[in-house]
Design a protein around this nucleic acid. Structure first.
Lengths: 225, 225
DNA sequence: CCTACCGATCGGTAGG
DNA sequence: CCTACCGATCGGTAGG
């Protein structure tokens, strides 16, 4: 709006030859915005941030459009519906989280200490997914699950199973070695719950660090041997 | 509607003497609905149930009205706004939870086993608050916190501090006796998080019972001595 | 507590 | 990706 040099109501465009220097359409603002992929991703990032802060229902598609400098109808050029945008946010979050988790794990045969070390890495990686800078995607998934359609929920559930599958062998090893006394399945649910809930109270700018949090989890959940 | 014997559009009421047997106004349906307190509470209960199932934003005041057989504008006779109704749900939930928790605790001087026994009672009482039949009030509080105004949030925070205050001396005693190794404050946050998150996955109709869940928590969080 | 209603907002779309 | 717009829904209110 601020860049508009012409009055709001313009006459029909003149024949082509008149203004050869100026390409038609809105001028591109930066390199980043040149291709569709980046604009689509800008919408995803802005949506994740707003969904996390205000909630899905309390965020209008107009809010999201404004956050990336688009007009109200334009997000629907990139996403079929507001629901599809929400699902895309969650899917991106899960893909990133699964990749981060895989990278954090150490092969289990390498050393007898591996289960304890891997437990710590799983916890720390999970905290990064929840509290790392700009990591709004998974927190949105955790708290806006209810707004998905049944089909979307089924698709996401598969990704969540993949994610949690990495925990089971580690927990089983710790159970076998006596570090973990509670049943493996309930342990996984309770531990992930404890971590996920930190979204409600953790503040990167004060209190414990993510490393201290991870230490506390290890001390809380695991026995000495 | 189904009880209406007169057509939708009725002429102005005739003078009093004409129909002495029929009192004016809508007939009362049951004893329960006779006083305002019960109607107000019916709204609270219906709202809690709907807010929990569908979320605050996705539940219209019309939904709530319909659930108790009122018309669309009538809830506003009992509550100033939808927000006020949400806050009332949460406040009722916290009062009930605090009362349940107080009743569950055993005085700490009575026996040396008291800290462990009280830990178990605190956990079990919390699960009752989250999963007991009809206990939708606190789950709504846990997941619709964001929809409150700043002032409402401050008021609720005081109740939450009261509630969690009961955990601190128990955790401190367990820390002193070596049953708990992680820092007390982080332990409280992580443990309550693990319990609260069970709202997302616990199903009273299948899987573990609340007692088994409580056992798993004790085994997961506490050392043998 | 009902009736009748209002103003605002919202997701989404046609057509370019 | 913008312009201009629609139909639906929603919280809330006046007046009884």
């Amino acid at each position: 709006m601020t860049f508009t040099a012409v009055p709001p109501t313009v006459p029909p465009a003149l024949p082509d030859a008149v203004e050869p220097k100026r390409p038609r359409g809105r001028p591109r603002k930066t390199e980043d915005e040149r291709d569709d992929g980046n604009r689509r991703h800008a919408l995803l990032t802005a949506a994740a941030k707003l969904f996390r802060r205000q909630g899905f229902d309390a965020t209008s598609t107009r809010d999201i459009a404004a956050a990336v400098g688009m007009h109200s109808g334009s997000p629907f050029y990139h996403f079929k519906s507001k629901d599809a945008l929400l699902y895309a946010v969650m899917e991106e979050g899960m893909h990133t989280a699964i990749a981060r988790q895989s990278a954090a794990l150490v092969p289990i045969e390498s050393t007898p200490m591996a289960p304890l070390a891997n437990m710590r890495r799983l916890i720390r990686s999970h905290f990064d997914t929840l509290h790392g800078p700009g990591n709004d995607f998974v927190p949105v998934m955790l708290y806006e699950h209810r707004s998905l359609s049944a089909r979307q929920r089924t698709l996401l559930a598969k990704l969540q199973v993949d994610y949690e599958a990495a925990w089971t062998p580690v927990l089983e090893a710790l159970h076998a070695s006596g570090h973990l006394r509670a049943p493996v399945k309930l342990s996984r649910l309770l531990m992930l719950g404890a971590l996920n809930w930190s979204v409600q109270w953790f503040d990167r700018k004060k209190g414990a660090s993510l490393d201290e949090l991870t230490d506390a989890c290890m001390a809380l959940f695991l026995k000495e041997s």
